[in-house]
Design a protein around this nucleic acid. Structure first.
Lengths: 98, 98
DNA sequence: TTGATTTGTCGCCGCTCGCCTACATTAGCT
DNA sequence: AGCTAATGTAGGCGAGCGGCGACAAATCAA
């Protein structure tokens, strides 16, 4: 999902945290930040430290990506989208739907 | 491209800036930050303000997105990936390859 | 409702940010 | 080489961060 503002970050972090059934306290420990900081980032703090934000995303197992002119789609080390065997998909479909 | 650390942010911002032929001064003005700040973020400053980072990405026309468990692929307002007419693709393929 | 957990808010305080000006260094020209 | 623009660095400054402990308020379960 696209992220345009610090408020978006807050909402998504909170959403992911709840989806994992974590409390602010647990997330704070896991991300090595204060609980207070979690409260603030979830509220959309603009002046939050970039590094802590990324620690938090990592603690939630979330990945961040940038796209735009002049930025390659992936890095060498990144795993590209898995190739799809269209033929197999179509065969399977024919077998089940008729 | 995936972004895991503040250093990644720096490299990508610099890369995008150069791809647009902008100087640090120009980017700084466009993003409403100090030139000094651009120097630091490009060097991978961990404690940079989240808000300014996003202003800068916006000034470079870069988009940020988050992915992971519990985070929807897109927001209502976001434009989904364009649907592909597989039939047309296959037809075209057959026409050219045989 | 009651009790317990979770979340939000407050004040304090050391530390660092980010802007500014000015200077040093490096790149990119002809 | 020589000049100019661009980039990196330094010191100083006000402002705000983020951690802490302690409370309030809200949420949830039985």
């Amino acid at each position: 999902m696209r992220v345009n503002t610090p408020v978006d970050f807050g909402l998504l972090i909170r959403q992911a945290r709840k989806a994992r059934g974590m409390t602010q306290q647990q997330l704070a420990r896991s991300a090595a930040v204060g609980r207070q900081w979690i409260v603030e980032i979830e509220a959309g703090k603009r002046r939050a430290e970039l590094g802590k934000v990324m620690q938090t995303l990592a603690a939630l197992d979330l990945t961040l990506s940038i796209r735009g002119e002049g930025i390659p789609e992936t890095r060498k080390s990144e795993v590209p989208i898995e190739a799809i065997d269209l033929q197999a998909v179509l065969d399977a479909h024919r077998r089940t739907s008729r």
